[in-house]
Amino acid sequence: MTPAIPVPAEWPARFGDELYRFALSRVSDAAAAEELVQETFLSALASLATFRAEASERTWLFVILRRKIIDYYRRQARAPHIGLEALSDGDNASVADYFSPATGHWAGPQEPASWLRADAALEQQELHEILQRCQARLSPQQEAVFAMRFVEELSAEEICQELGLTSSNYWVIVHRAKLQLRRCLEKHGLGQN
């Protein structure tokens, strides 16, 4: 039975695994996930007075963790970025690579290939691993925006607010991230028919 009054010292044993798995599904780094769980417990402890006994402790802790994850994305989006993508995939010049500068239509080799059989041919596990690898190849800002949009399913307005982006900047980032991710997935097996 759930005790009526939360006992913070019991949280790690009762909720640690579940919160940690959730955090790890978002940040893909064990140390960062652990840190998020610890921060969640400490924030919860500090705001214990706001906990209402009729709510579930578990739900309450998850609300706090979700907030911590959004903060994590925000820090990620602000991280200075000097990565491989700057040389190959992710910078301003590269969107032009997808489309012909003259017409704005797909540049020949960039035309999306059919994936008709690809997702049936790949094991789900394998598909998820490829997707994760491709997400990790985005710039930190693109990666954060992509996760907020497509994993957390925040609205464009919320993401702009969290990351301090203008609406047009935001759309440029989402567009670019999606183009790059799609191409990466295709390179890693989805386009082979």
Binding site: L24, E34, L127
Partner: peptide, 17 residues
């Protein structure tokens, strides 16, 4: 769809703390 499904799968089947 895959991005959501992949995160959900990991949240359910990941390693323990």
């Amino acid at each position: 769809e895959w991005a959501r499904a992949s995160a959900t799968a990991r949240a359910q089947a990941g390693p323990a703390l």
